[in-house]
Design a protein around this nucleic acid. Structure first.
Length: 574
RNA sequence: CGGGGUGUAGCGCAGGCCGGUUAGCGCAUCGGUUUUGGGAACCGAGGGUCGGAGGUUCGAAUCCUCUCACCCCGACCA
């Protein structure tokens, strides 16, 4: 490809919406254009990177027995009503009507469609397993799209779904995909980490996210300094367990006046205690059921853990009117002892680490001191309900948890029969019974991964593509377009490099050297081959490796081999 | 959804409070001359329904009303 013919334009100034470097670089290098909020045109350069990533994904999946399909982006409402998500997916689901008034949506994901597709074909256990995937544009009407391809409304995603005869087999499929994902991201040249993840609205009970490590990432990850434990903030746990303390010396409960002292900090300061000595009590609504959550005052409640523990769909703080029905006090004075109406009580492990705590008295303006768990009240469960923070101990070894930021580029879920039973995706098993297939689902944000690669690999001059997903692998730069011998030598080399299997462009624009250098650095071709009049006389070209920004002189007739070898080295799995 | 902000040439912006002939600047584009190893200089040119609708006025980019779009922080989501 001749750069003069390439559909792109590099920019010095970018739209102000671009807040992070990878987004700015996508604009500056002429790779994307915004069409609407969170909706982008993909220009030739990024599309090539995207296609390369897709090819890597395809190869790793096909190798493992997966089959590619393509499902529509417009989906009928009936399927979503069948799974129950039509009503509870919310405004993120873009709904449409056709001319006859029929309800449709733009697919934000394809569980319903694939489940329907498979059930039409599935009869016998002998057919399974199936593992089907596609590359398709998804649409999620995000509240706040941002960061370019990283959180767009329309985005390219590879989504895959496995169907197995049993839980055991499904977990094997899950494991296989987990390994495939590791291979995919390793081959793409990214620094990443698989982490334990919460399952959220998709459901299921086992999940890992693949996080590309980058400071601009939207997700917080906690990982162990010693072992390979790593988890999404929502899922992360620390070493805390239930403590068995001796309460015999604790005096009986006593109410103390705490007028207008509502927050943990206020109560602690008022009573001359530390926040660790206060019990934080919050009433949440898990779907329709009120639940009292208790954590030590210095901790924060992790709603995702509450949701997972209760197996609920939605968790939110209870309204004042609900609180009124349950306690005689308003929020700020709620506690586990003396509730007007008994509700489920869930205590975090941290509550058991102190011999006694001060809790709300369920009387406005009063707290109760010396509240002892299991003596003065009995929780329905004691488990982990708090947000784990950096500095806490690893749950698996004696290491310490460290915090870093990540961009979620892939996620694997074990789904079980959540969709297959609701949608009757069943088969006849060996005993002749009709049973639902056991499912898993597996996503990779393709555009997001490409942008994550930029976020992780750039410098002050521009993008530094990993060889495996670079739009082109090399660029030839004839510096004096007005000198025939330079031009001819460069074109000749460009042809040969392409023949040798290196994807190469030539910057044949009549521009000054500096302009071409800067553009080449910005776009981030891994290799630059520089043809200058002076070195050409000596039969030499300069080869610049973008990764290190080092230039070296190479004899022209050795340069092809040199670059072919460099490429080979770069593509070796590290 | 709450708070804040912005729409003026392809991109980045000025002008607006205080209404007044041809609406400016930088980048980009086109032509010319000189340049040519790290985003060249000079001369010249093209490009705008000032987001849209309505209103006030002799006169509106500027003031008023409505509307649309977009951005930032938060909440939400995975």
């Amino acid at each position: 490809m001749r750069v003069s013919q390439l559909f792109f334009q590099t920019l010095k100034e970018v739209p102000k919406e671009a807040q992070i470097e990878s987004h700015r670089l996508l604009y500056r290098a002429g790779m994307i254009q915004k069409l609407a909020s969170g909706v982008y045109n993909y220009l030739p350069l990024v599309l090539r990177s995207i296609r390369k990533l897709e090819d890597i994904i395809r190869e790793e999946l096909n190798k493992r027995g997966c089959q590619e399909v393509l499902m529509p982006s417009v989906q009928p409402a009936e399927l979503w009503q069948e799974s129950g998500r039509w009503s509870y997916y919310g405004p993120e689901l873009l709904r449409l009507k056709d001319r006859k008034g029929g309800d449709f949506c733009l697919g934000p994901t394809h569980e319903e469609v694939i489940t329907d597709m498979v059930r039409r074909n599935l009869r016998s256990y002998k057919q399974l397993p199936y593992n089907l995937y596609q590359f398709q544009s998804k649409f999620r009407d995000e509240v706040r799209p941002r960061f370019g391809l990283m959180r767009g409304r329309e985005f390219i995603m590879k989504d895959g779904y496995s169907f197995d005869v049993s839980e055991e087999k499904a977990k094997e499929s899950y494991k296989k995909m987990y390994e495939a994902y590791n291979a995919i991201f390793r081959r793409s040249g990214l620094k990443f980490k698989p982490v334990d993840a919460a399952t959220g609205a998709i459901g299921g009970d086992m999940s890992h996210e693949f996080q590309v490590l980058a400071d601009a990432g939207e997700d917080t990850i906690l990982s162990c300094s010693k072992c390979d434990y790593a988890a999404n903030l929502e899922k992360a746990t620390s070493v805390y367990k239930e403590n068995e303390l001796d309460f015999s010396a604790v005096p009986p409960m006593k109410d103390v006046a705490t007028p207008d002292q509502k927050s943990v900090e206020e109560v602690a300061a008022f009573l001359g205690k530390t926040t660790e000595e206060i019990m934080k009590s919050m009433i949440y609504m898990v779907d329709e059921e009120p639940v009292l959550i208790l954590v030590r005052g210095d901790k924060e409640i992790n709603e995702a853990k509450v949701q997972a523990f209760c197996k609920g769909n939605a968790v939110e703080l209870a309204s004042d009117s609900v609180i009124e029905e349950i306690s005689s006090a308003e929020h700020g004075f709620i506690g586990p002892v003396g509730l007007k109406k008994q509700i489920k009580i869930l205590a975090d492990y941290s509550v058991t680490t102190m011999p006694s705590l001060t809790a709300g008295a369920n009387k406005v303006g009063f707290h109760t001191e010396n509240v002892v768990i299991k003596r003065d009240f009995t929780p329905d469960a004691i488990s982990d309900f708090v947000i784990t923070t950096a500095g806490e101990r690893c749950p698996h070894c004696d290491g310490v948890l460290e915090e870093c930021r990540g961009i979620e580029v892939g996620q694997v879920f074990y789904l079980g029969t959540k969709y297959s039973s609701k949608m009757k995706c069943e088969f006849i098993d060996e005993s002749g019974a009709s049973v639902p297939a056991v499912m898993g689902c597996y996503g990779i944000g393709v555009g997001r991964t490409v942008q994550a690669a930029i976020e992780q690999n750039h410098d002050e001059f521009g993008i530094i593509w990993p060889m495996a997903i670079a739009p082109y692998e090399a660029i030839v730069l004839p510096l004096q377009m007005n000198k025939e011998e330079v031009k001819n030598a460069a074109f000749d080399f460009y042809e040969k490099l392409n023949m040798a299997g290196v994807e190469t462009v030539i910057d044949d624009r009549d521009e000054r050297a500096g302009f071409k250098f800067n553009d080449a650095d910005l776009v981030g071709y891994p290799v630059q081959v520089i043809f200058g009049a002076k070195s050409l006389e000596k039969g030499i070209v300069e080869v610049k490796i973008r990764k290190t920004n080092e230039k070296q002189e190479v004899k022209i007739d050795e340069a092809i081999d040199f670059i072919v070898n460099f490429k080979k080295e770069e593509l070796k799995q590290k």
